[in-house]
Design a protein around this nucleic acid. Structure first.
Length: 112
DNA sequence: GGGTTGACGTGCC
DNA sequence: GGGCACGCCAACC
């Protein structure tokens, strides 16, 4: 299921696509899963690229390490990301996921 | 090929 | 505890 020629973006998209509903993860966690923890910024960029590519991946389930919706401004509508998360059972207050730790989904742990 | 960018992370003040 | 500065690496121009 793994292609050798896929770029970072595609690898990130695969991981994000596997995030179960109601769960969230961080850019760093994804980057770490990809064995490139230093390239966490690329994950965010991949999200932006995915939106631009109109891919059907739950980019709203990816937040920064603090559980803050740092990328909400890229969803077209500011409240969209927050709305989607709350719709999945997450509690968002002040652009931050309150029960972030409880619903944190680490690909390195879940996917092994 | 070189410089800039970026939805981050960590460390330090 | 909040804010600032540096580092990181891949894609873009």
């Amino acid at each position: 299921m793994k292609k050798a020629e896929q770029s970072f973006f595609e690898a990130v998209w695969e991981v994000v696509a596997m995030i179960p509903s109601g769960k969230v993860t961080s850019y760093g966690a994804i980057a770490q899963y990809l064995s490139t923890p230093k390239a966490a910024r690329m994950v965010g960029w991949a999200m932006n690229a995915s939106l631009n590519a109109k891919l059907s991946i739950p980019a709203h389930r990816v937040v920064n390490r603090l559980g803050i919706l740092s990328g909400k401004t890229h969803f077209g509508q500011i409240d969209l990301m927050e709305t989607l998360l709350q719709n999945e059972g997450l509690i968002v207050v002040e652009d931050k996921i309150v029960n972030f730790k409880e619903n944190f989904w680490d690909p390195s742990t879940e996917l092994s």
